[in-house]
Design a protein around this nucleic acid. Structure first.
Lengths: 120, 120
DNA sequence: TGATTATATGATTATATGTTCATATATGTC
DNA sequence: GACATATATGAACATATAATCATATAATCA
């Protein structure tokens, strides 16, 4: 009764695998999927991806990143803030400079997953 | 000589793991990292994430998705177009309706990676 | 053929986002 | 303390993006 059905060319209803009601109940609440999308969104910018890539090769301070990417220091700092908030990077003050590093190996894994898909 | 060094509190230079020159050369070209970020960007929207989630549970036509997410049909179609372009979903016409499905299991894997990170 | 249903698409609009500029904060040097 | 260096941050602006509206296309049915 709650099956998702559609009129087909011959007028016969085609039942789908799942009950619409059950499927609807099984959807994670909007909030948790929002969190997930926000997480992926962080990877959805070239500058942040480039920063993450650099940090996957070596811990670096803001100045290093700025000069390696040949970008405005302010732009880098703004992006680092977003990466910090997403807990993708950590930082440690070292004299005047602040050294950034990847927060965990998880980031590399997600990177690789992405690369794999791209290169298919 | 090309080491990345910084003046520390005591005036001593601190050598980093990598040569700046070598590191710079090792950066994937901007274009391939752009492709990667564009890929992740597709996951960076709640609506698309919700659609992908639904499709991970069951193949569905546009009308089903529209009613399950209680959204405008046009909005769903627009997002499906983006998912198609990213090769994350496939479609198959079935009479008047068009049935969408995930393009491969890779999508689920990436999903799970994201969830894992979120739930840490 | 005309009406209906399912989906796609172009234009518009409101909002989100990234960069830049100017400036603040913080540490170290003289 | 005055100055230089390293980084962060708020405001402004230009661009990107998602939703909506109106409409087009496609398939089916009467």
């Amino acid at each position: 009764m709650n099956k998702i059905r559609h009129k087909a060319a011959d007028g016969v209803h085609i039942p789908k695998q799942l009950d619409e009601k059950k499927l609807k109940e099984a959807i994670p609440d909007k909030e948790s999927l929002l969190t997930l999308s926000e997480f992926f969104k962080v990877f959805g910018d070239v500058t942040r991806i480039r920063i993450l890539y650099l940090l996957s090769r070596s811990d670096l301070c803001v100045h290093d990143i700025t000069s390696l990417l040949e970008m405005n220091q302010s732009a880098i700092s703004h992006q680092l803030r977003i990466l910090k908030q997403a807990r993708l990077v950590r930082y440690k003050r070292n004299g005047r400079s602040i050294c950034y590093s990847l927060d965990d190996d998880h980031v590399k894994q997600i990177f690789n997953q992405g690369f794999e898909h791209i290169n298919e």
